[in-house]
Design a protein around this nucleic acid. Sequence first.
DNA 1: CGGGAGCGATTTGTATACAATAACCATCGC
DNA 2: GCGATGGTTATTGTATACAAATCGCTCCCG
Lengths: 220, 220
Amino acid sequence: MSRASEQAYAKIRAHLLSGAVKPSEQLTEDRLAQITGVSRTPVREAVRRLEDELLLVRSDTKRLFVADWSRDDIEEMFTLRQMLECHAAERAARRLSREQIGALEALNRDLKAAIEQTPPDVARFLDANRAFHEVIIEAAQSPRLGQLLPKLVEAPVVLRTARTYSPDDLRQSARDHDELIAAFAAHDPDWARAVMGSHLRRAFHTFARAVGPAAGKNET
Amino acid sequence: MSRASEQAYAKIRAHLLSGAVKPSEQLTEDRLAQITGVSRTPVREAVRRLEDELLLVRSDTKRLFVADWSRDDIEEMFTLRQMLECHAAERAARRLSREQIGALEALNRDLKAAIEQTPPDVARFLDANRAFHEVIIEAAQSPRLGQLLPKLVEAPVVLRTARTYSPDDLRQSARDHDELIAAFAAHDPDWARAVMGSHLRRAFHTFARAVGPAAGKNET
DNA sequence: CGGGAGCGATTTGTATACAATAACCATCGC
DNA sequence: GCGATGGTTATTGTATACAAATCGCTCCCG
C-alpha cells in the first residue's frame, strides 16, 4: 500500500496494541486522522484493512468500534485457523526446500533465545513465531490460503498482547516447532499436519486460559 | 455499504459478468467511475471489495486488471472451499431448525424448476444454489466462516458464467442437495460433511472440464 | 543497432469541502 | 411523568482538485 495509508495502518494498529483504547470503545475517522497525521482518505483505507482483520468493527449504522473478542470468538477463530494451517503444513511438507527448512531452524533458534532471556522477550517471541508460520504458508504455495489466514491470525494476538505467557507455554511452543521441522525434514505430510494440529489446539487453550474460563452461554 | 459505493459494486460486477471485458484486461478507476456514474471515491471502495473477492487484481504497480483464473487457481479455490464448507455443513447439521430445513427444501424445489424449464434458466439455478449454500453457512453460526467463504465462492462463478452447464450436471447438483437435506433432517454431521464434500468436488470437476483439461505445468 | 535518460501523458494516491445520515437532547403534548 | 418529535451536533459518505507515481515514447549516446 501507499505511504500514507500504510503509515495510518501501522499507527492505528500500534495504538490499539498500546492499550490506549479499550474493546467496544468508539473511534471516529477524524480522531484517527489526527492521531496518524494523515487525512481521512487514507485512514479509511487503513480502517477497512483493520476491519478485515477484525481488529475494528462497525455497528449497524456504520459507527466504528474497537473489536471485542469473546472466548467463543477466539475458539471459533482457532478452529478455522487450525483447519487452514494444518492444510498448509501438509502442503508445505511436500514442498519445503532445504533452504526454507534452514530458515525455520534459524527462526526457532531466535525464538528460543527470546524465551531464555531474563525476562523473556515476548515481543521478540511473537515476531519469530509469526515469521515461522509465514514461512510455512509461503511454502504451501497456495495464494488464496495466504490471503485468508492473516485475517484469522492477527486479531486476537494483537488485542490480548498484554496478557502473560508462562515460560512453560513458550518452551512447549518451541518444542512443537522442533517437531514440525522434523516432520518437514522427513517430508511427511501426515506428521506435519498432526503436529500443527496439536500445536494450534494447545495454543488455543493457553490463550483461552488467560481470557477466562469457558463461558456457558453468556452474551455480553 | 452506502448507496453510491454499493451501486458501483453492483454495476462493476455486472459489467464483468456481461463479458464486456476480458480477463487480464486493464481497467482504470476513472473509466469505472464513468460506467457507474459515481465519483472515484465510491468506485475505489467497490474496487477494494472486488479485489477481495478476487474478481479484480492489481499489478505490482497498482494498476487494475480483470482477474484471470487458471485451472490450478480454480482447483485451489475449490479445495479451500470444500474444507470450509464441509465444516459448515457439519455444524449446520447440529443446528438447523425445522424452519431452515423447510427453507432449503423450498430453495431446492425452485432450483429444480429452473433446471426443468426449456431452456434451463441457469441464472435462476445459480441464484437458488447460492441461496441454498448461504442458508447452510448461516446455520453454521460461525461469523468468521461466513466472512471467509464469500471470497472463495464468488469469483470463478462470475468470471466463467458464460460457460455451459449440462442438464445432467444440474440435475446431479439437485440430487446432492436432496441428500444434504436428508442428512440435515437426520441431524447427522458426518453424513452432511461427506455429502458436501462429494458435492463440491464434483462441482469442481464439472467446472474444470469446461475451463480446460488439467494443465501439466504451464504458467500464465 | 541497442540501451538508457528524459519528458509528456496516464493513472493512482491524498487532501479538503460539502452532503447525507444517524445520534443526542430538549421540549412538547398527552 | 412518559413517550414522541423536532432541531442540533457528531459522524460517515461523496465529489472534486491536486500531488505523486508510473508508463510509454522519443531521442540521444555509445
